[in-house]
Design a protein around this nucleic acid. Structure first.
Lengths: 223, 223
DNA sequence: CAGACGAGTGAACGTACGTTCACTGGAAGT
DNA sequence: ACTTCCAGTGAACGTACGTTCACTCGTCTG
């Protein structure tokens, strides 16, 4: 039996399509409102008004504002992880890692500014469940970076716990950098240039801190 | 002429004293409410209720919630700077710097948890003016750390701009650490131990990243 | 001692909030 | 064709919000 018995109108949307469209509109409206600086906790009614729908309709899609927040966290980190997969795949060498990865991260922040603004805000000021979800996602990324560092063999003389600490150091720094890019998008070039130098300070030093002789590429610097 | 013409009751407060007491109570109540996880923007009425005063009385002390926020930022950073002065005075050597300074910072966070929680939250989620004030204060601290690093001669082969970047790296890291201490006070020991190692990774490496031979104390490590 | 001052009061305003409930009307299922 | 389903409606609820205003009444001042 066919799913739709009367596919008369070719440009018409199915009921499921319309629902998904409204759901997306709610997510986007929530992001847009979260990007505005006023409130950390966004208002259900504001979201509904922006979507052009009555407040009650919200509950057809999300049981509460908190669940909407969790959905946004999920969505934000899904795209972020895709980006990171791409970064790590194309970064076998550390000199390349910094110069190659930072612009990709910056581009992703630029193209998903509302997501990052939401995450940055809710990470410290959101409802507890949302905060926990964000913290957990960042921990997962740190863990993945740890295994990636270990697999790359860049830190042979590191214990596994020290590798984890190094990964945490890098992730924390990038989180801070992303926050700055969100806060002041016009200064992207300056923020990136500074972060490039700082990450090099951090990595070149950290990768040689336990060894007596410099690690591979540690003393290579030409500018 | 005496300020008080009839000092009859010895335990009675002057009008100015009572006003100051209420002002302090408002500041404390606002901090206590900001420590709770619910709202980034605290409510004037909640503050008044906690103080045990009618909402209108608030305006005798602060023109708006934003001005109250700015007062709290001021107060928080005043005590923070006093602590930092103490830290920097007793840290002429870098090995000592880490082991000596981190516990002091941790103690200060522990003893002023509500202040730090307020700053951490409002830094990214507060009203724009409050956010700017916090950013500015942190920049001032970074600048002071820069001059302190330069004066100490620890980074002779650094350009002044690179010293500023190093200082920013350190301050950003400590801000992140403070946020974690606020979020999870029970893990203070673990957070501190990890931060100790990470700061050593960062500093030992960074201080030698431009020089061919290791900087003073860079290779000293015994655990 | 008498008047000015000013911290705190109490009522009232308009607005916005989250959530509930019964409902409508068109698409989906049979 | 007839029924079921369900995204969206609209009114209503109780509560909380920031801000205003005229006021009290103890303290300070001249």
């Amino acid at each position: 039996m066919p799913t739709e018995s009367r596919p008369r109108a070719p440009d018409a949307e199915s009921r499921a399509e319309r629902k998904e469209r409204t759901r997306r509109a709610i997510l986007d409206a929530a992001l847009a409102l979260a990007a505005d600086s006023n409130l950390a906790a966004i208002s259900l009614r504001q979201v509904a008004k922006q979507v052009g729908v009555v407040p009650t309709a919200f509950y057809r899609h999300f049981g509460s504002l908190e669940l909407l927040g969790l959905a946004l966290v999920d969505e934000s980190f899904r795209s972020l992880r895709l980006m990171l997969l791409d970064v790590w795949r194309h970064a076998p060498e550390y000199r390349d890692f910094i110069d190659g990865s930072l612009p990709i991260v910056a581009q992703h922040v630029r193209e998903n500014r509302t997501h990052y603004a939401f995450i940055a805000r809710e990470r410290v000021a959101g409802p507890p469940r949302v905060r926990e979800a964000i913290t957990h996602e960042i921990e997962l990324i740190t863990r993945e970076l740890s295994t990636d560092i270990a697999r790359s063999g860049a830190a042979e003389h590191y214990s596994s716990t020290d590798i984890a600490l190094l990964a945490d150091l890098i992730v924390s720094f990038v989180v801070t950098m992303a926050e700055r890019l969100v806060e002041d998008p016009d200064s992207e070039a300056r923020i990136l240039a500074q972060a490039r130098t700082q990450l090099r300070m951090l990595l070149v030093g950290a990768l040689s801190w336990r060894s007596r002789e410099p690690a591979a590429g540690a003393e290579a610097r030409d500018d």
